[in-house]
Amino acid sequence: MVDRSSTGSRPARIWRGHPNRGQPKADRTASNLSIEYSPDASGKLPERAFFKYNMNGRDRVAVRRHCAAVREALFYDEINRGLDDPIGPEAYDIGGDYDDGVAYLIIEDIADDHYLVDKADVDSPWGGWAPFETVPAERFVETTRRLARFQAAWWNHARITEPDLSSSTGDMLSVPMTGTETFVEKTLTDEWEDNIVEGLEKRGEPDPSASRETMRAAIEAWPDIWKDRASQGNLSLMHVDMHLRNVLFRKTDDRPILIDWEGLTTRLGIIDIAHLIATSMLSPDYLSRLDGLLVPAYHEALIEGGVTGYSLEDCERDYRLAWLALRRDLMNTR
């Protein structure tokens, strides 16, 4: 039971939620809710909502308040609500014990009027899940522009340098984790070498040993490269887990909405675009085509959003750095 008076767009007195289906995990649970109201309820009264109870990442960070569960709550409570054009679903209620790394969300259920794009019914040339080869380039372009507009709103903003946004969330790998000497030492082990070669062989890599050495060099060089790049500014918020299963498109006009903001952090925004392309498992021809479309579209949307002092050449350089940053966790997708 959530009982609160009407404030802004929040509903008044949600009094009963029935979990229709859940996705229980060790560190989080999600359910769709059907909502009923008391007779005196007023304001915006949705009949359905999405509930998420989350503890993800709290045992993998030094400060539990910085974990993935709380980071997503922070996104919905502060970041998304502060946008003129919110990039995520509307939040009705947010809370939890943040100091203990626990958060809950009650957010808009957009399943009925949005859709997920389909994967192709073929194997990926890179292994892993099926490719999104049949998704029109326009969906990639609009998702890219949407991300850029979001990032433009937070470009070089003082708020994004604070630890609750700039630190690792303890979830999937991101620049705050990979850009350290400690990470390099823990990663480059004999076991890593064996696993990398085995994985590359399964993917049909012509020279697995040479590719392994390229990856080793990239991992070793990245902390210094990132330290130099970060000192130059032009940073913003990143989604981090940017792939097409975290994008829903509105049925009426294909407008994208992004979900799953547990990895939200501060770094090179265009890493999200490289991640979107890499995780789509596309053919080399389609990859090449999107390279030529998405970087200019991303930069154009940043400029339209008010970003200055960041040229297309700067953007293209950062896009190349993005692929270097992703080599550790996306290994041979490119």
Results as ranks from 00 to 15, higher is better:
residue 5 S to Q: 04
residue 7 T to N: 09
residue 7 T to D: 08
residue 13 R to K: 13
residue 13 R to C: 05
residue 13 R to Y: 09
residue 13 R to A: 09
residue 18 H to Y: 08
residue 20 N to T: 11
residue 23 Q to M: 02
residue 26 A to D: 11
residue 28 R to D: 06
residue 29 T to Q: 05
residue 32 N to G: 04
residue 34 S to P: 02
residue 36 E to Y: 11
residue 36 E to W: 12
residue 36 E to R: 14
residue 36 E to K: 14
residue 38 S to L: 15
residue 39 P to H: 14
residue 42 S to L: 02
residue 44 K to P: 13
residue 44 K to E: 01
residue 45 L to F: 09
residue 45 L to V: 13
residue 46 P to D: 05
residue 48 R to D: 10
residue 50 F to E: 11
residue 53 Y to H: 14
residue 54 N to D: 15
residue 54 N to E: 09
residue 54 N to P: 10
residue 55 M to N: 05
residue 57 G to S: 09
residue 61 V to A: 12
residue 68 A to E: 01
residue 69 A to Q: 12
residue 70 V to G: 05
residue 70 V to H: 11
residue 76 Y to I: 03
residue 84 D to I: 04
residue 85 D to A: 05
residue 85 D to Q: 08
residue 88 G to P: 02
residue 94 I to T: 12
residue 96 G to F: 00
residue 98 Y to V: 03
residue 102 V to A: 02
residue 102 V to I: 11
residue 102 V to W: 00
residue 103 A to H: 01
residue 109 D to E: 06
residue 113 D to Q: 12
residue 121 D to V: 04
residue 127 G to N: 10
residue 132 F to P: 00
residue 135 V to Y: 10
residue 135 V to C: 13
residue 147 L to H: 13
residue 147 L to T: 03
residue 147 L to A: 12
residue 148 A to D: 06
residue 149 R to C: 11
residue 156 N to K: 06
residue 158 A to P: 15
residue 159 R to K: 12
residue 159 R to E: 02
residue 159 R to P: 00
residue 169 T to H: 06
residue 173 L to Y: 11
residue 173 L to S: 14
residue 181 E to N: 15
residue 186 K to I: 00
residue 188 L to I: 07
residue 194 D to A: 15
residue 197 V to S: 10
residue 198 E to H: 07
residue 200 L to R: 14
residue 200 L to G: 09
residue 205 E to M: 13
residue 207 D to T: 06
residue 207 D to W: 03
residue 209 S to M: 02
residue 209 S to D: 07
residue 209 S to F: 00
residue 212 R to G: 02
residue 213 E to N: 10
residue 216 R to C: 00
residue 221 A to E: 09
residue 222 W to Q: 09
residue 225 I to Q: 15
residue 227 K to M: 08
residue 227 K to L: 09
residue 239 H to M: 04
residue 241 D to F: 11
residue 245 R to T: 00
residue 251 K to S: 06
residue 254 D to A: 12
residue 257 I to D: 01
residue 258 L to A: 01
residue 264 L to D: 01
residue 268 L to N: 05
residue 271 I to D: 04
residue 274 A to S: 09
residue 275 H to W: 03
residue 276 L to K: 13
residue 278 A to W: 00
residue 280 S to G: 07
residue 285 D to P: 08
residue 287 L to T: 14
residue 289 R to S: 12
residue 289 R to Q: 11
residue 290 L to Q: 00
residue 291 D to A: 10
residue 293 L to G: 07
residue 298 Y to K: 13
residue 299 H to R: 10
residue 306 G to A: 09
residue 308 T to N: 09
residue 310 Y to N: 09
residue 313 E to I: 07
residue 318 D to G: 07
residue 318 D to F: 02
residue 318 D to N: 08
residue 319 Y to C: 02
residue 322 A to T: 03
residue 327 R to T: 08
residue 331 M to L: 07
